[in-house]
Write a protein that binds this DNA or RNA. Structure first.
Lengths: 199, 199
DNA sequence: ATACCGGCTGACCGATCAATCAGTCTGGAA
DNA sequence: TTCCAGACTGATTGATCGGTCAGCCGGTAT
Protein backbone atom coordinates (compact mmCIF):
# COMPACT_ATOMS: atom_id res chain seq x y z
CA UNK A 1 0.00 0.00 0.00
CA UNK A 2 2.84 2.35 0.84
CA UNK A 3 1.31 5.09 2.90
CA UNK A 4 4.22 7.36 3.58
CA UNK A 5 1.45 9.92 3.16
CA UNK A 6 -0.59 11.08 6.15
CA UNK A 7 -0.72 8.28 8.72
CA UNK A 8 2.34 6.05 8.60
CA UNK A 9 1.66 2.36 8.77
CA UNK A 10 3.91 1.83 11.79
CA UNK A 11 1.92 4.41 13.70
CA UNK A 12 -1.33 2.80 12.63
CA UNK A 13 -0.04 -0.55 13.86
CA UNK A 14 0.98 0.97 17.20
CA UNK A 15 -2.40 2.59 17.64
CA UNK A 16 -4.43 -0.52 16.86
CA UNK A 17 -2.12 -2.73 18.91
CA UNK A 18 -2.58 -0.45 21.90
CA UNK A 19 -6.37 -0.69 21.64
CA UNK A 20 -6.33 -4.45 21.27
CA UNK A 21 -3.76 -5.12 24.00
CA UNK A 22 -5.66 -2.87 26.40
CA UNK A 23 -8.98 -4.54 25.66
CA UNK A 24 -7.87 -8.16 25.68
CA UNK A 25 -4.33 -8.44 27.01
CA UNK A 26 -1.16 -9.63 25.34
CA UNK A 27 -1.96 -13.30 24.85
CA UNK A 28 -5.52 -12.87 23.61
CA UNK A 29 -4.41 -10.65 20.74
CA UNK A 30 -2.82 -12.21 17.67
CA UNK A 31 -0.63 -10.56 15.07
CA UNK A 32 -3.41 -11.31 12.58
CA UNK A 33 -5.87 -9.31 14.69
CA UNK A 34 -3.55 -6.33 14.71
CA UNK A 35 -2.84 -6.65 10.98
CA UNK A 36 -6.56 -6.68 10.22
CA UNK A 37 -7.22 -3.67 12.44
CA UNK A 38 -4.30 -1.72 11.02
CA UNK A 39 -5.18 -2.78 7.46
CA UNK A 40 -1.78 -4.11 6.60
CA UNK A 41 -0.15 -7.50 6.26
CA UNK A 42 1.09 -9.61 9.15
CA UNK A 43 4.54 -9.55 7.63
CA UNK A 44 4.64 -5.79 7.73
CA UNK A 45 4.27 -5.85 11.48
CA UNK A 46 7.33 -8.04 11.76
CA UNK A 47 9.10 -5.78 9.29
CA UNK A 48 8.53 -2.76 11.52
CA UNK A 49 8.75 -4.25 15.01
CA UNK A 50 10.60 -7.55 14.75
CA UNK A 51 8.39 -9.57 17.08
CA UNK A 52 5.08 -9.49 18.93
CA UNK A 53 6.89 -8.85 22.22
CA UNK A 54 8.90 -5.99 20.73
CA UNK A 55 5.68 -4.42 19.46
CA UNK A 56 4.13 -4.76 22.92
CA UNK A 57 7.12 -3.12 24.60
CA UNK A 58 7.11 -0.37 21.99
CA UNK A 59 3.46 0.34 22.72
CA UNK A 60 4.07 0.27 26.47
CA UNK A 61 7.03 2.64 26.19
CA UNK A 62 4.91 5.12 24.27
CA UNK A 63 2.04 4.78 26.73
CA UNK A 64 4.34 5.40 29.67
CA UNK A 65 5.93 8.43 28.03
CA UNK A 66 2.58 10.01 27.24
CA UNK A 67 1.46 9.31 30.78
CA UNK A 68 4.35 11.16 32.39
CA UNK A 69 3.88 14.03 29.94
CA UNK A 70 0.24 14.22 30.94
CA UNK A 71 1.15 14.22 34.61
CA UNK A 72 3.57 17.12 34.23
CA UNK A 73 0.89 19.05 32.40
CA UNK A 74 -1.78 18.43 35.04
CA UNK A 75 0.46 19.34 37.93
CA UNK A 76 1.58 22.62 36.37
CA UNK A 77 -1.43 24.60 37.55
CA UNK A 78 -0.74 26.76 40.54
CA UNK A 79 -3.84 27.63 42.49
CA UNK A 80 -3.82 27.21 46.24
CA UNK A 81 -4.84 24.99 49.13
CA UNK A 82 -8.16 23.09 49.17
CA UNK A 83 -9.24 24.27 45.72
CA UNK A 84 -5.99 22.92 44.39
CA UNK A 85 -6.61 19.50 45.89
CA UNK A 86 -10.13 19.46 44.48
CA UNK A 87 -8.74 20.33 41.07
CA UNK A 88 -6.05 17.67 41.37
CA UNK A 89 -8.58 14.97 42.17
CA UNK A 90 -10.53 15.89 39.05
CA UNK A 91 -7.44 16.24 36.87
CA UNK A 92 -6.07 12.92 37.97
CA UNK A 93 -9.39 11.27 37.22
CA UNK A 94 -9.55 12.99 33.86
CA UNK A 95 -6.08 11.75 33.07
CA UNK A 96 -7.25 8.21 33.68
CA UNK A 97 -10.52 8.46 31.81
CA UNK A 98 -9.39 10.47 28.80
CA UNK A 99 -7.31 7.54 27.56
CA UNK A 100 -8.86 4.36 28.95
CA UNK A 101 -6.58 2.14 26.89
CA UNK A 102 -3.51 3.71 28.36
CA UNK A 103 -4.64 3.31 31.93
CA UNK A 104 -5.91 -0.22 31.35
CA UNK A 105 -2.55 -1.21 29.93
CA UNK A 106 -0.78 0.32 32.88
CA UNK A 107 -3.05 -1.40 35.39
CA UNK A 108 -2.45 -4.72 33.66
CA UNK A 109 1.27 -4.22 34.04
CA UNK A 110 1.08 -3.02 37.64
CA UNK A 111 -1.14 -5.79 38.91
CA UNK A 112 -0.11 -8.78 36.85
CA UNK A 113 3.50 -8.33 35.82
CA UNK A 114 6.60 -9.65 37.54
CA UNK A 115 8.15 -7.98 40.61
CA UNK A 116 11.10 -6.74 38.59
CA UNK A 117 8.87 -5.03 36.07
CA UNK A 118 7.07 -3.49 39.03
CA UNK A 119 10.33 -1.86 40.04
CA UNK A 120 10.85 -0.46 36.53
CA UNK A 121 7.33 0.94 36.42
CA UNK A 122 7.74 2.53 39.82
CA UNK A 123 10.83 4.36 38.67
CA UNK A 124 9.74 5.34 35.21
CA UNK A 125 6.15 6.41 35.54
CA UNK A 126 4.56 6.23 38.93
CA UNK A 127 7.58 7.60 40.71
CA UNK A 128 7.11 11.04 39.24
CA UNK A 129 3.35 11.01 39.58
CA UNK A 130 3.56 9.88 43.19
CA UNK A 131 6.27 12.37 44.07
CA UNK A 132 4.33 15.31 42.67
CA UNK A 133 1.14 14.29 44.41
CA UNK A 134 3.05 13.79 47.67
CA UNK A 135 4.50 17.28 47.44
CA UNK A 136 1.04 18.69 46.91
CA UNK A 137 -0.19 16.92 50.03
CA UNK A 138 2.77 18.06 52.06
CA UNK A 139 2.31 21.64 50.91
CA UNK A 140 -1.11 21.54 52.47
CA UNK A 141 0.19 21.57 55.98
CA UNK A 142 0.73 18.08 57.25
CA UNK A 143 4.29 17.12 58.00
CA UNK A 144 3.72 13.93 59.98
CA UNK A 145 5.98 11.30 58.48
CA UNK A 146 4.30 9.25 55.80
CA UNK A 147 0.98 11.07 55.98
CA UNK A 148 1.44 12.91 52.70
CA UNK A 149 2.52 9.73 50.91
CA UNK A 150 -0.42 7.80 52.28
CA UNK A 151 -2.86 10.53 51.27
CA UNK A 152 -1.45 10.53 47.73
CA UNK A 153 -1.86 6.76 47.65
CA UNK A 154 -5.49 7.06 48.73
CA UNK A 155 -6.19 9.53 45.93
CA UNK A 156 -4.72 7.21 43.32
CA UNK A 157 -6.36 4.10 44.77
CA UNK A 158 -9.79 5.72 44.86
CA UNK A 159 -9.65 7.11 41.34
CA UNK A 160 -8.19 4.00 39.77
CA UNK A 161 -10.67 1.69 41.44
CA UNK A 162 -13.59 3.99 40.71
CA UNK A 163 -12.75 4.13 37.04
CA UNK A 164 -11.71 0.54 36.40
CA UNK A 165 -14.36 -1.13 38.55
CA UNK A 166 -17.21 0.96 37.21
CA UNK A 167 -18.83 -2.08 35.63
CA UNK A 168 -19.32 -3.58 39.07
CA UNK A 169 -19.69 -0.41 41.12
CA UNK A 170 -22.66 0.88 39.16
CA UNK A 171 -24.68 -2.19 40.09
CA UNK A 172 -24.04 -2.03 43.82
CA UNK A 173 -27.08 -0.78 45.75
CA UNK A 174 -26.59 2.65 47.26
CA UNK A 175 -23.41 3.42 45.36
CA UNK A 176 -24.78 6.42 43.50
CA UNK A 177 -21.30 7.90 43.44
CA UNK A 178 -20.47 5.35 40.74
CA UNK A 179 -22.21 7.48 38.12
CA UNK A 180 -22.16 10.87 39.88
CA UNK A 181 -18.64 12.02 39.05
CA UNK A 182 -18.93 15.44 40.64
CA UNK A 183 -20.35 14.03 43.85
CA UNK A 184 -17.66 11.39 43.88
CA UNK A 185 -14.85 13.92 43.35
CA UNK A 186 -16.26 16.04 46.14
CA UNK A 187 -16.33 13.12 48.56
CA UNK A 188 -12.78 12.13 47.70
CA UNK A 189 -11.53 15.68 48.11
CA UNK A 190 -13.29 15.89 51.44
CA UNK A 191 -11.88 12.70 52.88
CA UNK A 192 -8.35 13.64 51.77
CA UNK A 193 -8.69 17.11 53.29
CA UNK A 194 -9.87 15.60 56.56
CA UNK A 195 -6.86 13.32 56.59
CA UNK A 196 -4.56 16.29 56.06
CA UNK A 197 -6.03 18.07 59.05
CA UNK A 198 -8.01 20.63 57.08
CA UNK A 199 -11.75 21.02 57.09
CA UNK B 1 -3.31 -43.41 37.63
CA UNK B 2 -6.75 -43.66 39.20
CA UNK B 3 -6.53 -41.66 42.37
CA UNK B 4 -9.94 -42.06 43.91
CA UNK B 5 -7.82 -42.15 47.06
CA UNK B 6 -7.02 -38.94 48.95
CA UNK B 7 -6.94 -36.07 46.44
CA UNK B 8 -9.30 -36.60 43.53
CA UNK B 9 -7.96 -35.71 40.13
CA UNK B 10 -10.76 -33.26 39.39
CA UNK B 11 -9.89 -31.36 42.55
CA UNK B 12 -6.22 -31.36 41.63
CA UNK B 13 -7.11 -29.96 38.21
CA UNK B 14 -9.24 -27.24 39.79
CA UNK B 15 -6.48 -26.29 42.18
CA UNK B 16 -3.74 -26.05 39.57
CA UNK B 17 -6.02 -24.30 37.09
CA UNK B 18 -6.84 -21.69 39.71
CA UNK B 19 -3.15 -21.02 40.34
CA UNK B 20 -2.33 -20.78 36.65
CA UNK B 21 -5.34 -18.66 35.68
CA UNK B 22 -4.62 -16.28 38.54
CA UNK B 23 -0.97 -15.95 37.62
CA UNK B 24 -1.28 -15.62 33.86
CA UNK B 25 -4.92 -15.15 32.89
CA UNK B 26 -7.23 -17.31 30.81
CA UNK B 27 -5.60 -17.00 27.40
CA UNK B 28 -2.02 -17.42 28.53
CA UNK B 29 -2.74 -20.79 30.14
CA UNK B 30 -3.13 -23.85 27.95
CA UNK B 31 -4.86 -27.10 28.77
CA UNK B 32 -1.45 -28.74 28.43
CA UNK B 33 -0.05 -26.45 31.14
CA UNK B 34 -2.85 -27.42 33.50
CA UNK B 35 -2.49 -31.11 32.65
CA UNK B 36 1.23 -30.99 33.41
CA UNK B 37 0.70 -29.13 36.70
CA UNK B 38 -2.09 -31.48 37.78
CA UNK B 39 -0.11 -34.52 36.63
CA UNK B 40 -2.84 -35.94 34.46
CA UNK B 41 -3.61 -36.14 30.76
CA UNK B 42 -5.13 -33.36 28.71
CA UNK B 43 -8.01 -35.66 27.86
CA UNK B 44 -8.85 -36.12 31.48
CA UNK B 45 -9.48 -32.42 31.85
CA UNK B 46 -12.02 -32.56 29.03
CA UNK B 47 -13.47 -35.69 30.58
CA UNK B 48 -14.15 -33.87 33.86
CA UNK B 49 -14.94 -30.36 32.68
CA UNK B 50 -15.93 -30.53 29.02
CA UNK B 51 -14.08 -27.45 27.82
CA UNK B 52 -11.47 -24.92 28.86
CA UNK B 53 -14.17 -22.31 29.38
CA UNK B 54 -16.23 -24.66 31.53
CA UNK B 55 -13.18 -25.35 33.67
CA UNK B 56 -12.58 -21.62 34.04
CA UNK B 57 -16.17 -20.98 35.11
CA UNK B 58 -16.03 -23.90 37.50
CA UNK B 59 -12.91 -22.45 39.11
CA UNK B 60 -14.47 -18.99 39.26
CA UNK B 61 -17.68 -20.33 40.80
CA UNK B 62 -15.70 -22.05 43.54
CA UNK B 63 -13.56 -18.96 44.11
CA UNK B 64 -16.62 -16.74 44.40
CA UNK B 65 -18.35 -19.15 46.76
CA UNK B 66 -15.35 -19.36 49.07
CA UNK B 67 -15.08 -15.60 48.97
CA UNK B 68 -18.62 -14.98 50.16
CA UNK B 69 -18.17 -17.65 52.83
CA UNK B 70 -15.06 -15.88 54.03
CA UNK B 71 -16.87 -12.56 54.14
CA UNK B 72 -19.70 -13.94 56.24
CA UNK B 73 -17.16 -15.37 58.63
CA UNK B 74 -15.21 -12.12 58.95
CA UNK B 75 -18.29 -10.01 59.52
CA UNK B 76 -19.64 -12.30 62.23
CA UNK B 77 -17.53 -10.73 65.00
CA UNK B 78 -19.44 -8.33 67.18
CA UNK B 79 -17.25 -5.85 68.97
CA UNK B 80 -18.16 -2.18 68.87
CA UNK B 81 -17.45 1.15 67.23
CA UNK B 82 -13.91 2.23 66.26
CA UNK B 83 -12.29 -1.03 67.37
CA UNK B 84 -14.71 -2.83 65.12
CA UNK B 85 -13.71 -0.75 62.12
CA UNK B 86 -10.03 -1.30 62.85
CA UNK B 87 -10.67 -5.02 63.03
CA UNK B 88 -12.68 -4.95 59.82
CA UNK B 89 -9.88 -3.20 57.93
CA UNK B 90 -7.46 -5.90 59.05
CA UNK B 91 -9.89 -8.74 58.41
CA UNK B 92 -10.70 -7.49 54.95
CA UNK B 93 -7.01 -7.22 54.15
CA UNK B 94 -6.39 -10.67 55.55
CA UNK B 95 -9.19 -12.04 53.39
CA UNK B 96 -7.42 -10.66 50.34
CA UNK B 97 -3.92 -11.75 51.24
CA UNK B 98 -4.65 -15.20 52.59
CA UNK B 99 -5.61 -16.44 49.15
CA UNK B 100 -3.81 -14.28 46.59
CA UNK B 101 -4.92 -16.43 43.67
CA UNK B 102 -8.56 -15.96 44.57
CA UNK B 103 -8.32 -12.21 44.82
CA UNK B 104 -6.20 -11.93 41.67
CA UNK B 105 -8.80 -13.92 39.75
CA UNK B 106 -11.56 -11.71 41.07
CA UNK B 107 -9.69 -8.53 40.19
CA UNK B 108 -9.13 -9.84 36.67
CA UNK B 109 -12.85 -10.37 36.32
CA UNK B 110 -13.78 -7.03 37.82
CA UNK B 111 -11.42 -4.95 35.75
CA UNK B 112 -11.37 -6.73 32.43
CA UNK B 113 -14.64 -8.55 31.98
CA UNK B 114 -17.69 -7.43 30.06
CA UNK B 115 -20.33 -5.09 31.50
CA UNK B 116 -22.81 -7.92 31.76
CA UNK B 117 -20.40 -10.06 33.76
CA UNK B 118 -19.82 -7.01 35.92
CA UNK B 119 -23.48 -7.04 36.76
CA UNK B 120 -23.38 -10.72 37.68
CA UNK B 121 -20.34 -10.21 39.88
CA UNK B 122 -21.97 -7.26 41.61
CA UNK B 123 -24.99 -9.36 42.45
CA UNK B 124 -23.37 -12.64 43.29
CA UNK B 125 -20.21 -11.73 45.17
CA UNK B 126 -19.50 -8.11 45.86
CA UNK B 127 -23.08 -7.20 46.62
CA UNK B 128 -23.08 -8.99 49.93
CA UNK B 129 -19.60 -7.83 50.90
CA UNK B 130 -20.45 -4.24 50.04
CA UNK B 131 -23.77 -4.33 51.84
CA UNK B 132 -22.25 -5.68 55.03
CA UNK B 133 -19.45 -3.13 55.01
CA UNK B 134 -21.95 -0.37 54.33
CA UNK B 135 -24.05 -1.41 57.31
CA UNK B 136 -20.98 -1.36 59.49
CA UNK B 137 -20.21 2.18 58.38
CA UNK B 138 -23.79 3.30 58.92
CA UNK B 139 -23.85 1.74 62.38
CA UNK B 140 -21.02 4.06 63.29
CA UNK B 141 -23.13 7.13 63.28
CA UNK B 142 -23.16 8.72 59.87
CA UNK B 143 -26.48 8.81 58.11
CA UNK B 144 -25.72 11.29 55.35
CA UNK B 145 -26.89 9.73 52.11
CA UNK B 146 -24.18 7.86 50.34
CA UNK B 147 -21.53 8.52 52.95
CA UNK B 148 -21.54 4.99 54.32
CA UNK B 149 -21.36 3.48 50.83
CA UNK B 150 -18.52 5.75 49.84
CA UNK B 151 -16.59 4.91 52.99
CA UNK B 152 -17.02 1.20 52.33
CA UNK B 153 -15.75 1.76 48.80
CA UNK B 154 -12.68 3.58 50.10
CA UNK B 155 -11.88 0.69 52.43
CA UNK B 156 -12.06 -1.81 49.60
CA UNK B 157 -10.18 0.40 47.14
CA UNK B 158 -7.35 1.03 49.58
CA UNK B 159 -6.89 -2.59 50.58
CA UNK B 160 -7.16 -3.98 47.07
CA UNK B 161 -4.74 -1.47 45.62
CA UNK B 162 -2.32 -1.84 48.52
CA UNK B 163 -2.20 -5.59 48.12
CA UNK B 164 -2.21 -5.91 44.35
CA UNK B 165 0.11 -3.00 43.60
CA UNK B 166 2.65 -3.95 46.24
CA UNK B 167 5.27 -4.63 43.57
CA UNK B 168 5.16 -1.00 42.56
CA UNK B 169 4.30 0.58 45.92
CA UNK B 170 7.33 -0.82 47.72
CA UNK B 171 9.65 0.98 45.33
CA UNK B 172 8.06 4.40 45.68
CA UNK B 173 10.16 6.74 47.83
CA UNK B 174 8.55 7.60 51.16
CA UNK B 175 5.86 4.92 50.91
CA UNK B 176 6.95 3.00 53.98
CA UNK B 177 3.35 1.94 54.52
CA UNK B 178 3.85 -0.46 51.61
CA UNK B 179 5.66 -2.91 53.87
CA UNK B 180 4.39 -1.74 57.27
CA UNK B 181 1.03 -3.48 57.41
CA UNK B 182 0.13 -2.41 60.94
CA UNK B 183 0.96 1.20 60.21
CA UNK B 184 -0.99 1.03 56.98
CA UNK B 185 -4.06 -0.48 58.63
CA UNK B 186 -3.93 2.20 61.30
CA UNK B 187 -3.83 4.98 58.73
CA UNK B 188 -6.72 3.49 56.79
CA UNK B 189 -8.80 3.08 59.92
CA UNK B 190 -8.04 6.65 60.86
CA UNK B 191 -9.01 8.19 57.54
CA UNK B 192 -12.25 6.19 57.45
CA UNK B 193 -13.12 7.22 61.02
CA UNK B 194 -12.51 10.85 60.15
CA UNK B 195 -14.82 10.54 57.18
CA UNK B 196 -17.51 9.07 59.42
CA UNK B 197 -17.28 12.01 61.78
CA UNK B 198 -15.49 10.18 64.57
CA UNK B 199 -12.05 10.97 65.90
C1' DA C 1 -17.65 -65.76 34.44
C1' DT C 2 -19.82 -61.85 32.26
C1' DA C 3 -21.41 -57.35 31.53
C1' DC C 4 -21.07 -52.82 32.55
C1' DC C 5 -19.49 -48.23 34.03
C1' DG C 6 -16.64 -44.30 35.17
C1' DG C 7 -11.84 -42.66 35.52
C1' DC C 8 -8.42 -42.16 32.57
C1' DT C 9 -5.11 -42.29 28.51
C1' DG C 10 -2.46 -41.77 23.92
C1' DA C 11 -2.97 -40.87 19.30
C1' DC C 12 -4.77 -37.76 16.50
C1' DC C 13 -7.53 -33.65 14.23
C1' DG C 14 -8.16 -29.05 12.02
C1' DA C 15 -7.28 -24.44 13.20
C1' DT C 16 -4.41 -20.95 14.45
C1' DC C 17 -0.30 -19.21 16.33
C1' DA C 18 4.26 -16.36 15.74
C1' DA C 19 7.67 -16.02 12.61
C1' DT C 20 10.37 -16.53 8.06
C1' DC C 21 11.44 -15.88 3.43
C1' DA C 22 11.70 -14.75 -1.33
C1' DG C 23 10.39 -11.37 -3.90
C1' DT C 24 7.58 -6.91 -5.69
C1' DC C 25 7.14 -2.07 -5.85
C1' DT C 26 8.65 2.78 -5.33
C1' DG C 27 11.32 7.03 -4.61
C1' DG C 28 15.54 9.09 -4.60
C1' DA C 29 20.69 9.08 -5.05
C1' DA C 30 24.52 8.33 -8.38
C1' DT D 1 19.45 5.06 -16.92
C1' DT D 2 21.08 2.34 -13.30
C1' DC D 3 21.06 1.07 -8.76
C1' DC D 4 19.78 0.54 -4.11
C1' DA D 5 17.35 0.92 0.31
C1' DG D 6 13.32 0.38 2.46
C1' DA D 7 8.16 -0.35 2.67
C1' DC D 8 5.41 -3.97 1.89
C1' DT D 9 3.21 -8.62 0.60
C1' DG D 10 1.75 -13.76 -0.14
C1' DA D 11 2.99 -18.17 0.67
C1' DT D 12 4.61 -21.08 3.87
C1' DT D 13 6.87 -22.94 8.09
C1' DG D 14 6.91 -25.78 12.56
C1' DA D 15 4.80 -25.44 16.88
C1' DT D 16 1.00 -25.30 19.68
C1' DC D 17 -3.73 -24.57 20.45
C1' DG D 18 -8.53 -26.62 22.07
C1' DG D 19 -10.90 -30.56 21.36
C1' DT D 20 -12.23 -35.63 19.80
C1' DC D 21 -12.16 -40.45 19.93
C1' DA D 22 -11.48 -45.32 20.53
C1' DG D 23 -10.20 -47.99 23.93
C1' DC D 24 -7.68 -49.61 28.47
C1' DC D 25 -8.20 -50.54 33.36
C1' DG D 26 -10.26 -51.71 37.98
C1' DG D 27 -14.28 -52.15 40.65
C1' DT D 28 -19.22 -53.67 41.16
C1' DA D 29 -23.41 -55.75 40.11
C1' DT D 30 -25.52 -59.81 38.02
Amino acid sequence: MLRAEQNSCAEQIREQAKKLFAARGFDAVSISDIADAAECSKSNIFHHFGSKEALYFDVMRQVMQRSTDRIRQVMADDIDAPARLAQTVKDHYAMISEDPERSRLMMREVMFSSPQRGRELAGQVFGEQFKTLTELMRSMGDEADGRAEFTAFMLIAANVMHFHCHNVLQHLPGAEFADDLDGYAHMVTNILLLNLGKN
